[in-house]
Write a protein that binds this DNA or RNA. Structure first.
Length: 480
RNA sequence: GGUGCCUUCGUCUAGUGGUCAGGACUCAGGGUUUUCAUCCCUGCAACAGGGGUUCAAUUCCCCUAGGCACUGCCA
């Protein structure tokens, strides 16, 4: 595979947002292309006029851009093998279908949908696997002309014949099918529009695709496609069918439980790099065993030989962890810039304060969308917040009263109010009350922040300011 | 039903004809932080089952079970 120029394509159908399964296919295509210094193509498979939308193409392109995946040829972008939208290539497909018709490798089928449906039901009742009978393949030429003259509508079916189709998949290895189980399938609809399996082959050939990398849902389509390649006498590309991404029940990852489309991850505050890293680690692993991998390393190390054949469960908990790792690595300028969109709730607050407050959460944040809830207590009226049972337990400690009293007393005498001075202050409270560790810090933390955990206490007090800090401590004291 | 693919800790995975079956996430415990979190360390936890082949099988072969996908005038 090295002599030949590597050309791969990502070919989504624009029927909604970019799903993580498709995103992974895009990522793998990208990594493979870059690894081999090849070319990546974006092709829009919009032959389903009912479901395809222009907006969807937009969002898919946006999502791909957000991920940072780049392609050399595609709609909008152009390239010498265009157009890259299948809906703009119908003439091409019809021409190739005509060639097949001429060669007798395909035929017009005049059966109505109702007729087919009846046959299908009958087969099902009898427990026999259904496949098209092929009866229209035997109609005489005169009859065909007569039918056409009568204006009867027809589909074009590919004549499958009988043979064993086997191919070597880069991931699944040797795979073979008996063509008899397939049945003559439709390549052109009655309205003249072409069907996926047909367009896909025509385009992959015309666009000189060297490697077809796609989800293993397409594995069963591959023999049909190979038959078409053979019918035209075309070279068959390499196939790599990637195992699917499953949900926690080991079912095809679908909506309903959590996020499944790239834009949802984007909105929840995941970093594109984290998503790519995480997705690339499903069914694949680095030879080094490392898990946090830069894009450069992924490109360098990616290879189908290290890919499993089994599906992988998408574990959002691990993704969150990984995203947290990448957030920690961000420098503070970039961190704040990416966080800004999640701060709309705090419009009236100065950027300076927001920067100070949000930076405290950089080590613990897993998703940007969490920031709002985390920092809210800085701007809320904390005197109105109730204590949870766990908090009350801690406040009930014998030492609590003394700690809070000493704290407010010493705090009132402070002249400077800085992180260091507050730290020192708490140290002194410990000395004077002879309380330390948890029993010293937790009552203060709870009284002042109304939370069981958060950033370093002195840092919070500093931002609150002296007056507010003392006020909050006192307020709790009076109710003790 | 038919066809195809798959099966190592809960999850993602490494790995080999002889290994204490390794790592990561989660969880638990400990250490640092005079607190929580971060961070560090330790621990829990797996070769689907049954037959072969072999001196030896998690690894090779077969069967069973289970899972998933496809089975459209969807892609």
């Amino acid at each position: 595979m090295s002599e030949k120029q590597v050309r791969v394509r990502f070919a989504p159908s624009p029927t909604g947002h970019l799903h993580v399964g498709n995103a992974r296919a895009a990522i793998l295509n990208y990594l493979f292309a870059k690894h081999h210094n090849g070319t990546m193509i974006l092709r829009i498979e919009d032959t389903d006029a009912q479901r395809s939308t222009e907006e969807s193409i937009q969002t898919i392109v946006e999502d791909l851009n957000w991920l940072g995946l780049k392609w050399e040829e595609g709609p909008l972008k152009g390239g010498k093998f265009g157009p890259y939208k299948q809906s703009e290539r119908y003439e091409i497909y019809r021409n190739y279908a005509d060639k097949l018709l001429e060669k007798g490798l395909a035929y017009r089928c005049f059966c109505s949908e109702e007729e087919i449906e009846k046959e299908r039901e009958k087969a099902e009742q009898q427990g026999i696997p259904y496949k098209y009978s092929g009866k229209c393949g035997k109609i005489s030429k005169e009859k065909i002309d007569e039918n056409i003259a009568k204006g009867l509508s027809f589909v074009v079916r590919f004549k499958v014949g009988s043979q064993i189709i086997s191919f070597k998949d880069l991931i699944m290895e040797e795979v073979s099918f008996q063509s008899e189980t397939i049945g003559d399938f439709v390549i052109i609809r009655s309205d003249g529009s072409p069907i996926y399996n047909f367009c896909c082959v025509i385009d992959d050939n015309l666009m000189e695709i060297s490697h077809v990398i796609r989800g293993d849902g397409h594995l069963a389509n591959t023999p049909k496609q190979i038959l078409i390649y053979k019918a035209f006498g075309w070279e068959i590309p390499n196939f790599a069918h990637t195992p699917m991404i499953l949900d926690e029940n080991r079912k095809k990852l679908s909506k309903r439980k959590g996020a499944t489309s790239v834009d949802e991850f984007k909105n929840e505050g995941y970093l594109p790099h984290a998503l790519i890293n995480f997705l690339s680690l499903l069914s694949w692993s680095s030879p080094s065993g490392d898990e946090i991998l830069s894009i450069e390393r992924l490109i360098k190390e990616f290879d189908f030989s290290r890919m499993n054949k089994s599906g992988a469960v998408f574990d959002p908990v691990k993704l969150n962890w990984m995203n947290g790792v990448y957030i920690k690595e961000l420098d503070s300028v970039k961190y704040f810039e990416l966080l800004k969109p999640y701060l709309t709730k705090f419009e009236g607050v100065s950027e300076e304060i927001l920067k100070k407050v949000t930076i405290l959460f950089k080590p613990s944040l897993q998703r940007f969308s969490e920031i709002s809830d985390e920092i809210e207590f800085f701007f809320a009226d904390l005197t109105k917040i109730e204590f949870s049972e766990e908090m009350q337990e801690i406040l009930k400690l014998e030492t609590t009263k003394n700690v809070l009293e000493t704290f407010t007393k010493l705090a009132s005498n402070e002249t400077i109010w800085s992180f260091d001075s507050i730290k020192e202050l708490i140290k002194n409270v410990g000395k004077q009350t002879n309380v330390k560790g948890k029993n010293l810090f937790m009552p203060l933390r709870i009284a002042i922040t109304k939370k069981l955990h958060g950033p370093e206490l002195p840092a919070i007090c500093e931002i609150f300011g002296k007056d507010k800090t003392i006020l909050l401590a006192k307020e709790v004291l009076t109710n003790l």
